[in-house]
Amino acid sequence: MTASRRVLLPGVALLLLAALAAGLLLGPARVAPATLPAWLADRLGWAPLPPSLLGEAAILEAIRLPRALMAAIIGGGLGAAGAVMQGLFRNPLADPGLIGVSAGAALAAVAAIVLGGGLAGLGLWLVPLAAFAGGLAATLLGLALSRDGAGLDAATLLLAGIAINALCAAGTGLLVFLADERQVRDITFWTLGSLAGVRLAQLPVALLLIAAPALALLALARPLNSFLLGDAEAFFLGERVPQVRLAAVLLSAIAVSAGVALTGLVAFVGLVVPHLLRLAGARDHRLLLPGSALLGAALLLLADLGARSLAAPAELPLGVVTALIGAPFFLWLLRQGRSA
């Protein structure tokens, strides 16, 4: 491993720490840098919080901390899932939405908004639960359609994903047509993505359904390195190709479905992050997967900071900010590939 690759992960980890500090301290209401260590010392019982910092500490604890931690968890899950999908399909333009996860989650969330009046007892959990179930259902449908006698066929899964995406988009469009004005506003807000409604009670759910699957994906680094040679070569190297492919798809679907459920649609993170690391020399999945998780977390933290700050006191949709970052990079990537 070259010296540049040895410092890549520590460098990305430092970027994540810097992005986390910026997310906690910066925004429309500034929090003094001294507030963070003072708040930590108070929470750890080392020293009482000075009265002059009580207001800023309240902003930090009630608003900034849950939002920043959620952005880091979701960004990490999207980054890791994107790297796994690109390695699994040997396609640098693959992302988790390719197999229909995001479209299925969007269809179920919109259905909950338009038709879920009878389930109002679920309260604020109605739309997230529906989106999570919809993302998983779309993935399981794609898996069922792509299984054959030898296991899971990657090409068929991609084709099934295209069809499922189109079907879910049609269903979403029909529900939007049937929605009233208030429901259309709710649908628009959800589909553009936002961390504004994040609450501390959601963090354990995010750790269980996003962070845990993302950590499990890191264990697939060695098999994914073998997959780069082809399925037959991976088999002769001792990899259980169908089982690895199934585990990769399911774990990615769980992490992405939960992320979409909690924030709405956030585009391009899973596509852009692995490419940024490959440009820095990370080809080995043992480096690429953890690097993608760390960089995805940092990127979503910075995108959320931009969403809160660029149009203050209003807030830009998070999905708009990530698309503004990711789409130009995607076009540049296509141009570079064509030149090559």
Rank of each mutant, 00 (worst) to 15 (best):
F89R: 06
L107Y: 09
L209T: 12
A323M: 07
A258K: 03
F329P: 02
A163L: 07
L143V: 04
V110Y: 07
A155G: 12
R222C: 04
V31F: 02
L333H: 03
V12A: 15
A72L: 14
P213K: 03
V249N: 02
V110L: 07
V244R: 02
D186T: 11
D231Y: 00
G134K: 08
L93I: 08
A312Q: 01
A57M: 03
A154T: 14
A196Q: 14
P290L: 11
D284Q: 12
R308G: 09
L220F: 10
W39Y: 12
Q243P: 01
A216R: 13
G306Q: 09
L157H: 06
L44V: 09
D304M: 05
V249L: 01
R338L: 12
L224S: 05
E56H: 08
P290R: 07
A201Y: 00
L289G: 08
I99A: 03
M85C: 03
G193A: 06
G121W: 15
A323Y: 08
Q202S: 14
P37D: 12
A196L: 01
A138I: 11
A81L: 08
V260R: 06
L93E: 11
G173K: 13
A216F: 12
A170I: 09
G45A: 07
A170D: 08
G79Q: 01
L40S: 00
G281Y: 14
A41N: 09
A169D: 05
G161M: 06
L9E: 09
L15W: 03
A133I: 03
V7T: 15
L305P: 08
L316T: 04
L159M: 10
L203I: 15
V320E: 01
A13H: 06
R335Q: 06
W190H: 10
A297C: 09
L107F: 15
E239K: 10
T172I: 04
G97C: 10
S339E: 06
V320N: 00
P48I: 07
G171K: 07
G171S: 09
Q243I: 03
I73F: 01
G87S: 03
V110A: 11
R278D: 09
D95Y: 14
V249A: 05
L175F: 07
A314L: 15
R185I: 06
R240E: 13
R185Q: 14
S4G: 01
V31Y: 04
P51E: 14
A323V: 10
S102R: 07
V272H: 08
A323C: 08
G291C: 07
D180M: 04
R199D: 12
M70L: 12
A137M: 05
S52T: 15
V256S: 10
L129P: 00
Q86Y: 12
G100K: 02
G23K: 11
L145R: 10
L192W: 13
A307N: 03
L200I: 08
L215K: 11
V249C: 05
A138K: 05
G259Y: 07
F235Q: 14
P328G: 11
A72K: 02
Q243K: 09
A103S: 15
L140M: 08
L251N: 07
A18K: 03
T35C: 15
A72F: 01
R30S: 13
G259H: 01
A261W: 00
I113V: 14
A21C: 12
Q202I: 00
G337W: 13
G55T: 08
L8H: 12
R335H: 13
V266K: 09
A323K: 10
A170G: 13
